[in-house]
Amino acid sequence: MGTVFSFDVRGGEPLAVQAALREAVAGLHRVNEVFSTYRDDSQVSRLARGELTVDDCDREVAEVLELGAEAERLSDGWFSMRYEGRLDPTGIVKGWAVERAARRVAESGATGVSVNGGGDVQLLGVPGPERPWRVGVSDPLRPGGLAAVVSAAGATELAVATSGTAERGAHIVDPRTGRSAVTDLLAVTVVAPTITWADCWATAAFAMGSREGLAWLEALPDTEALLITAGDEVLITGGLAARLG
């Protein structure tokens, strides 16, 4: 199944916004062509097979690989761009693509932009003068229900990323074993200014498990989180309460 990207755009001059949306969408399709590990002919697949060098690829490939390397470093290897020994930057591409698309639309003069790529959300600006963006966090134990609502009140940039086993079965790999992460967590939701990092941190913390994950997230600057364990416990970082609405 593909991933749905939804745009919610407020304000701005309609023609300029529409043009920016078209560009953002074209950009997402290009990302798919270049980065998909499911396509043998994508630049990333060819790079992984050694048929291309990074310099042969679109410049975005080097940009994403650098961001991914930084995520690996900052997460002490819990976030990884390798899967079964092979280059696989999928873990960072989606968040990066969501953020880039949101910024492209905001540049057109829109006053509020929300982009949701498969459950990873980047918010810019505000939806209206009287109300902040509000993001529901889906409850892994109560399908269709919400575990929390995050408010972007007071923030001009906010992102909400959730990693877990609920959406598509176990898909997070422990980079140390190469197998599905053994974790006591069902879902990790990270709230941070940008979705590129929020998504990486959610993935890394999920693989770490509740104890190490919570402590690690607590130490990250400008980052709050909500972790839900298999025992239906909800753990939150110290500053998250101020974001719940």
């Binding site: 199944m1 593909g2 991933t3 749905v4 990207f5 939804s6 745009f7 919610d8 755009v9 407020r10 304000g11 701005g12 309609p14 916004v17 529409q18 949306l21 969408v25 997402l28 399709h29 798919n32 998909s36 499911y38 396509r39 999928t90 989606k94 829109a110 949701n116 790529g117």
Partner: peptide, 26 residues
């Protein structure tokens, strides 16, 4: 209602295929 998207001036729903067996549609 935000299952897909709702906007005042312009909004959109986009399906992006990150895997090859789905036809991208906008």
């Amino acid at each position: 209602i935000v299952l897909a998207s709702a906007a005042t001036v312009s909004g959109m729903v986009l399906l992006l295929s990150l895997k090859p067996h789905t036809t991208p549609a906008v």
